[in-house]
Write a protein that binds this DNA or RNA. Structure first.
Lengths: 133, 133
DNA sequence: CCTCTTCGCTAAGTAAACCTAGCGATCGCT
DNA sequence: AGCGATCGCTAGGTTTACTTAGCGAAGAGG
């Protein structure tokens, strides 16, 4: 009975993603917090998955990281509609294929790199339970 | 200009949209509330723009209306980052950033490869650096 | 050694999201 | 006329998001 807590895992994944993006941009916790107009302790708690941030905060964090809101929301498990079962594992592949800024050689090698990363090492996603519509 | 309150207008627009969708589906307040696992008074307040619903509630309401969350957020004007009006190569970047099958270092290096291809000039502020894997 | 700064985190409080209980109005039915 | 069911909303309390104040560790100089 005392089973898993998928929402907590989702929160932790979101937090780790934010933290990795922040470090990649070489920002301190206080720095990003100031950019996003949130307090640094709260941002710390978000990054450790202790709280579920609101849409407003999520948007502000995305702005502070120069990311789109869709990216963060998707990472937060928000995207993915009940009537649109586009669960294709290759949304990235489609984006690469449709990207008009890539030359054909570049497109091919980028696709090759991506496939070498994900090809057979399909990381097990946290259990996503769908109540059948 | 100082008199406007854009956040409240957004909330009201979102609420009116939810209400119109609910009536179009011929659902009562209590009905949709039960589908979305929220209380009916709270749903009433959301529809009148008195509260900003959390991500969890937003997702549940979208599910109860058989809508995608993007539709709800887009209608509310919550999508579209203020710092990222770019429509071009960001689509691929977003896909890479949101890809759940990539590890963080894989994500970073794939992103670096892509950016080197499109020779993207990033904003002057954040230092963008890729630690070599 | 000591001081100054910056890092991330904890503790305790305030503000807001969210729920349960219940009210007045409107409908159909006998 | 009533009674009962259902509509949306208000009033109050509980839970959670979010803030301000401050602690201890780690590095840079004196």
């Amino acid at each position: 009975m005392a089973g898993e807590d998928p929402v907590r895992e989702q929160l932790e994944a979101l937090g780790e993603f934010i933290r990795s993006q922040r470090k990649q941009a070489q920002l301190s916790l206080r720095d990003l917090a100031e950019r996003a107009n949130v307090s640094n302790p709260y941002l710390s708690q978000i990054e450790r998955g202790l709280h579920e941030p609101s849409v407003r905060v999520l948007k502000a964090i995305a702005g502070g990281l120069n990311l789109s809101v869709e990216t963060l929301l998707g990472r937060a498990g928000l995207l993915g509609s009940p009537t649109d079962p586009d669960e294709g594992p290759t949304a990235t592949e489609h984006a690469i294929l449709a990207d008009p800024y890539l030359g054909d050689d570049q497109r091919a090698s980028l696709l090759a790199v991506y496939r070498s990363y994900v090809d057979r090492v399909r990381q097990p996603r946290p259990a996503e339970d769908e109540p059948a519509p």
